[in-house]
């Protein structure tokens, strides 16, 4: 794991352990935690007493900030975003924040700009900006369509 000083999510420096780990979008976490909470409800009368404060706060948070409620939509979001060869972390930031414009998307996930150029041509900064923007724009369109038809 990299040192504390080097950590910077904007450049995707989040340590090897987390870079390779599976990231979860808020809506996915909501599905997992709600399922777990329902199971607890079956086995105990007062489930809120059984769970930790961390669990309770996380559940409230992901319920409040889930962009997609329907489990099928959640699956679709991940499927669509994973077509764009994003890192897990980038995928989840985009899925959580749902930026509306290319500019906003790059501000939220500065690393996609750089990442895209590496993936597409082997070495960075040789591909024109317009093309990158086009790909990002298409991705954002796909995302907003899911939201619309949810």
């Amino acid at each position: 794991m990299s040192g504390e000083e080097e950590e910077n999510a904007a450049e995707l420096k989040i340590g090897d352990e987390f870079l390779k780990a599976k990231c979860l979008m808020n809506c996915e976490v909501a599905l997992i935690l709600e399922h777990k909470y329902e199971q607890l409800q079956k086995t105990s009368d007062d489930p809120m007493n059984q769970v930790s404060q961390v669990f309770e706060k996380s559940l409230q948070y992901v319920k409040r900030f889930s962009r997609y409620k329907n489990p099928d939509a959640v699956r679709q979001v991940r499927e669509i975003l994973s077509r764009y060869q994003l890192a897990e972390f980038e995928l989840c930031v985009l899925g959580n924040l749902c930026p509306e414009t290319v500019e906003e998307a790059i501000a939220m996930v500065p690393s996609i700009k750089y990442f895209y150029s590496i993936i597409k041509c082997g070495h960075p900064h040789t591909r024109g900006r317009a093309h990158d923007d086009e790909a990002i724009e298409k991705m954002l369109n796909d995302l907003s369509l899911i939201k619309k038809f949810e």
């Binding site: 950590e7 910077n8 999510a9 987390f18 404060q53 706060k57 930031v93 959580n96 939220m108």
Partner: peptide
């Protein structure tokens, strides 16, 4: 949480020094 990460949070307290917000735990 990571340095440089952008996320959404709920404001819990406001004072003249700034404000506190919570993102999950």
């Amino acid at each position: 949480p990571f340095k440089g990460e952008i996320l959404e949070a709920v404001v819990t307290m406001v004072n003249k020094m700034g404000f506190f917000a919570e993102a999950g735990p």
